[in-house]
């Protein structure tokens, strides 16, 4: 089976690259695809924090907002370019992540989750009330379209930029998880005391997890800002944070593909359920309860299990059953 391992990634990349062609640059499809990419980046970030390092955050919308507003402000007020805005805003957002990590260094579980909720709320309130900077509830308007060089990106172009960044984030994260750092994250999630006795500096790795998650959120926020063209504090509310968490948990926290699967499914789900807007959160709530109860490793885990069952059926292979 091993020689076929490359086939799925290649197929998926091909599909993603050809998507504008297949859909004849359908505005709606590409719009959803861009939103999916942005949320994939957010979910990959939270997956590091919550899935691997075991640090639950319900305040990711706070980082998302900071990333979006800083990129937007740099573009609107200083007229800086697309890439430099993304870079500066992600760096600043990761500094905020460092700050939140430092202030919560001894908090775990529900206590940490509560503080992150507060953090998200504070960021939102700052965005609402600092009206001369952010425009408050009126919104930060007039963020220019992204340019690469002197070329204004079309929607299709922006789509390619987004999936390119998702790919980078995905690969970088996978590499980190498959290294000393990733093992340290998982070890401290599994058994904190033993991890510290194995030479893992818990405080340091916590901060690393916070900073990476915030950095990614900063990227996602910047991408959103340039995509939407205007920013409103309402968008970055608590249920946005919860949505990101749902993506991770539904897709499979602590799994490689889980956050992306979750981001795509939840985003598309929101679109499908749009007619029942007031019931959306109820449906997701029920979904999350079912996932936590019956599929602790989310859809990603379910897919893996199904793949294994199919493999066994096909080959009558007892080896597959053993592992």
């Amino acid at each position: 089976m091993k020689e076929k391992k490359w086939i799925y990634p290649v197929l998926i990349s091909l599909l993603l690259l050809l998507l504008p062609l297949i859909t004849r640059q359908n505005y709606y499809v590409l719009h959803i695809a861009i939103i999916c990419s942005i949320f994939s980046i957010l979910a990959i970030g939270l997956n590091i924090l919550q899935g691997y390092a075991g640090l639950v955050s319900i305040g990711q919308a706070g980082f998302y907002a900071i990333g979006a507003y800083i990129a937007g402000l740099l573009a609107v007020k200083l007229g800086l370019g697309f890439w430099i805005c993304i870079l500066i805003s992600s760096l600043v957002t990761s500094l905020v992540g460092l700050g939140l990590g430092l202030t919560t260094v001894r908090l775990y579980g529900g206590y940490l989750a509560l503080v992150t909720v507060g953090f998200g709320r504070i960021v939102q309130l700052v965005a609402v009330n600092w009206t001369n900077l952010t425009g408050g509830g009126e919104g930060l308007l007039g963020i220019p379209s992204a340019k690469v060089g002197s070329h204004v990106l079309s929607q299709t172009g922006y789509y390619y930029v987004c999936i390119f960044i998702v790919a980078l984030v995905f690969l970088f994260t996978g590499n980190v998880i498959n290294s000393k750092t990733g093992r340290a994250f998982i070890a401290m999630r599994e058994q904190r005391i033993a991890a510290s006795m194995m030479g893992i500096d818990i405080a340091k790795y916590r901060l690393i997890a916070f900073v990476i998650a915030a950095f990614y959120s900063g990227i996602a926020g910047s991408l959103y800002g340039f995509f939407a063209g205007s920013l409103f504090p309402d968008y970055f509310n608590l249920s946005q944070s919860v949505t990101i968490l749902i993506m991770v948990v539904l897709g499979g926290s602590g799994t490689k593909y889980g956050p992306i699967i979750g981001a795509i499914l939840v985003t598309i789900g929101f679109e499908v359920l749009r007619p029942f807007q007031s019931y959306q959160m109820i449906i997701y709530g029920i979904g999350i309860v079912l996932v936590v109860m019956f599929m602790p490793s989310g859809l990603s885990g379910l897919i893996q299990r199904l793949a294994k069952v199919i493999k066994i059926r096909k080959k009558g292979d007892t080896h597959a059953a053993a592992d």
């Binding site: 000393k180 093992r183 058994q191 893992i200």
Partner: peptide, 22 residues
Amino acid sequence: RLFPNMTVLENIVVGRHCRIEE
């Protein structure tokens, strides 16, 4: 105090943490 959801080999490799420079 093992890391229950890691494999046996991964558990061991975590122990090597402070000797890996990455």
